[in-house]
Design a protein around this nucleic acid. Structure first.
Lengths: 231, 231
DNA sequence: AAGCACCATCTACCATGTCAGATGTTCTTG
DNA sequence: CAAGAACATCTGACATGGTAGATGGTGCTT
């Protein structure tokens, strides 16, 4: 049996709910967040909400303006470029380590993720495709077996996940190319060719950055309709 | 004149004080931290202390055990290896970007840091040497001109800074080799040779990791005497 | 009508109170 | 004397209250 079973603190579940609401698009980019209002919506006190917002600020999902209010982050094409560049740095370093350390496990995970992407595409399930995509890149990070690196990645990727949801609502992205690029990376990993994998991965994330830039310049502002937080 | 002058929130100054106390060695590794005791020592309420501890936990300097207490982090040779590996990843990526983006400014900063190290060494000022060392590596990160990367670096480097203070109290480290290694990196940057700079930088941080491992295995636990927090 | 001072209102910041869980000690019991 | 139960105490989790600062509107002044 498992060692313990620690119920998540109210603090954590609150942070999870708010993060989810932002990433899933229930809260518009730049939307105003009030400690009091969120506390009322979630049925908790202001304390856990305050802690949660502070944690989300560290993740880059929320910006807190002293005495003025908390707001969902607003994308900025320069910041998005920085995030993508950082992402490339972490993923390429991770894939090199992963190919060195446990190539077979990494290959297995990437293949499974590619299959999941294909299935989601066949089923016309964009949400499932996104999940499989995240799973693919997460497998790369995990394969490096370095918690410090993984922590950095998690702290950096949330805004990008949110942007994907907010900008690609109508499935603007080219999933066919995306899928084939994933397969190319998989093959490079299978061949234990880190340099090729890195090159392909860089190009892949670069294409994502391009898509972000294109959609950011057209939409100008995140004007997705705000929605309520679900229990 | 400057746009504004926002006084730091009590929250931040509290976090700064506690962080400083840990990094400077005033608080022993693994020392027990009580919200109440810290609040009394610093003359503030428990709220800012609580927020500060949460922030420091995100930095890896503090671990909070629910309902049990907060403690200064305790080093673990495996975790230290991971931190150093992560550090190499970020610094090597940064130096490559820096050489591409603004090599002259980077060269200037690195040269200045090397001079400061030399001066500190001549003056027998280990604390000054450490500061110059941090300045050197920070210049590399800043040169990449990527805030996301810089944020990751800051969040990762604090425990390493603290370890340096706690483990190298008697100046165990080989400052002569360290200085020469810094100069080699400087020369590679001056020559705009990213591959050589990366190789040298990896070796340099690798030596640091070795030193950490050596001292960790001998001391087994951080038993530096605890001290009071200064105003 | 334009500009400015005043004020109602909203915000996060910080202080304090209350409570349940974790721990160390003492007392009881075999 | 050993082992376990009951208790006192310490901790952080969470709730709530008070306050300074920021904002937006209103009415007065010119």
């Amino acid at each position: 049996m498992q060692p313990v079973e620690h119920p998540k603190s109210l603090n954590e579940v609150t942070a999870d709910k708010i993060r989810n609401a932002i990433v899933e698009g229930e809260l518009a980019l730049g939307a105003k967040l009030s400690e009091q209002r969120l506390a009322d919506l979630l049925g908790v006190s202001r304390s856990p909400v305050r802690d949660a917002l502070a944690a989300l600020q560290a993740e880059g999902l929320v910006v807190i303006s002293p005495k003025r209010g908390s707001f969902v982050f607003t994308p900025d094409s320069h910041v998005v470029d920085e995030l993508c560049e950082h992402r490339v740095i972490l993923e390429t370093a991770a894939v090199r380590l992963g190919i060195t350390r446990n190539p077979s496990e990494l290959t297995r995970q990437l293949a499974a993720s590619c299959d999941a992407m294909q299935s989601a595409l066949d089923a016309g399930d964009p949400h499932g495709y996104t999940r499989a995509d995240h799973q693919f890149h997460n497998a790369i990070i995990e394969s490096a077996d370095n918690r410090a690196l993984a922590k950095s990645y998690v702290l950096m990727i949330s805004p990008l996940k949110a942007l994907r949801t907010h900008l690609f609502t109508i499935m603007t992205e080219n999933t066919d190319r995306s899928l084939s690029e994933h397969h190319l990376v998989l093959n490079a990993v299978r061949d234990k060719d880190p340099d090729r994998a890195i090159s392909l991965l860089s190009a892949h994330v670069g294409h994502l950055a391009e898509a972000f830039r294109a959609n950011l310049s057209t939409s100008q502002d995140g004007k997705i309709s705000p929605a309520t937080l679900e229990a």
